[in-house]
C-alpha cells in the first residue's frame, strides 16, 4: 500500500502494556499478550482554524459557511502541501488514477452523489456533505413561504454514524446548545485531539472512562490514587 490507502476514516489503535519503554519489552513478556487497547477513529477533524487551508496555493480547500472544511476537487492541483500541514494526517491523495472509469458495470457500484476523484487531487472526509445537502434541500422544500423549515437535530446522519453499531458517533449542529452533540460536547470528558495546536477541530472525542475490576487489571494498570 505504501501509505496510499484511501480510507477517509483511519482507525487508530494504541496499546498500553504499562511498560515504560521499548527496552522493557522482551518478546516473552506476558504483559504483551494482553495489553490494554485504545481505539480511535480519526477522520478529517474539520478544523475551525484549519492548517490545511492556509497553505493551499489555489484555495482548493476552504471553509463553507456552515464551517465544513470543503475540498474543491476541480480546483486542486495536487501540491500535497495541505496534507503535509494537516497534523492529523487524514488527507488522502490520488497518487495514480485509482478509479476505473471505463468498465460500465462498475458505474453501478458508485454512489451517484459522490464525485469520483481523478488522479492528482487530494481528498478527505467531507462530513458526508452530500447527505447534509440532501437534508437541507428537503428542509427547504418542506418550509413555508420559500423559507426552510430548518434542519432538525439528528436529521442528518453521516455514513459512519449510521454504520456504527454502538452509536459512538454523533453528528449535529454544535451551535445549537440543545442538540445532542452540544450536550455531549459539554461533558467534562470531551477533548480535542492535539488541541494544543490550536487548529480547533470541530470533531471532538469523549474520553472513555474505564473502571476495570482490580483483580482483572494488572498491577501496573491501576490508576494512581
Amino acid at each position: 500500500m505504501r501509505g496510499r490507502e484511501m480510507h477517509w476514516i483511519r482507525i487508530d489503535r494504541y496499546y498500553d502494556t504499562g511498560l515504560k519503554t521499548q527496552e522493557d519489552t522482551p518478546a516473552e513478556n506476558p504483559e504483551l499478550a494482553n495489553p490494554q487497547t485504545f481505539f480511535q477513529p480519526v477522520p478529517c477533524q474539520q478544523c475551525e482554524n484549519a492548517p490545511c487551508e492556509q497553505v493551499c496555493p489555489v484555495g482548493a480547500t476552504v471553509h463553507s459557511a456552515e464551517g465544513l472544511n470543503d475540498m474543491v476537487y476541480n480546483r486542486c492541483i495536487g501540491t500535497r502541501y495541505c496534507s503535509n500541514n494537516c497534523p492529523y494526517k487524514v488527507r488522502r491523495f490520488n497518487f495514480l488514477r485509482f478509479q476505473d472509469w471505463e468498465t460500465p458495470s462498475l458505474k453501478l457500484m458508485r454512489n451517484p452523489e459522490v464525485t469520483i476523484r481523478s488522479r492528482g487531487v487530494m481528498e478527505k472526509c467531507t462530513y458526508c456533505v452530500q447527505r447534509i445537502n440532501n437534508v437541507r434541500i428537503t428542509a427547504e422544500k418542506e418550509g413555508e413561504n420559500g423559507a426552510s423549515r430548518g434542519i432538525r437535530d439528528g436529521e442528518i446522519v453521516t455514513a459512519c454514524e449510521q454504520a456504527c453499531p454502538s452509536e459512538a458517533i454523533v453528528f449535529g449542529d454544535a451551535n445549537n446548545p440543545n442538540n445532542r452533540v452540544s450536550k455531549l460536547r459539554a461533558q467534562q470528558r470531551n477533548y480535542n485531539l492535539l488541541g494544543e495546536l490550536n487548529a480547533r477541530p470541530r470533531t471532538t472525542y469523549l474520553g472513555a472512562v474505564r473502571n476495570p475490576h482490580p483483580d482483572l487489571a494488572g498491577p501496573e494498570k491501576k490508576e494512581p490514587a
Binding site: 505504501r2 501509505g3 496510499r4 503535509n84 494526517k89 490520488n94 497518487f95 495514480l96 488514477r97
Partner: peptide
Amino acid sequence: TKGVGIWGINIPIGW
C-alpha cells in the same frame, strides 16, 4: 502519463 505515484511519496510524506 502515470501520475506522481511513480515516485516514492505517500501519505504522510507528501513531499
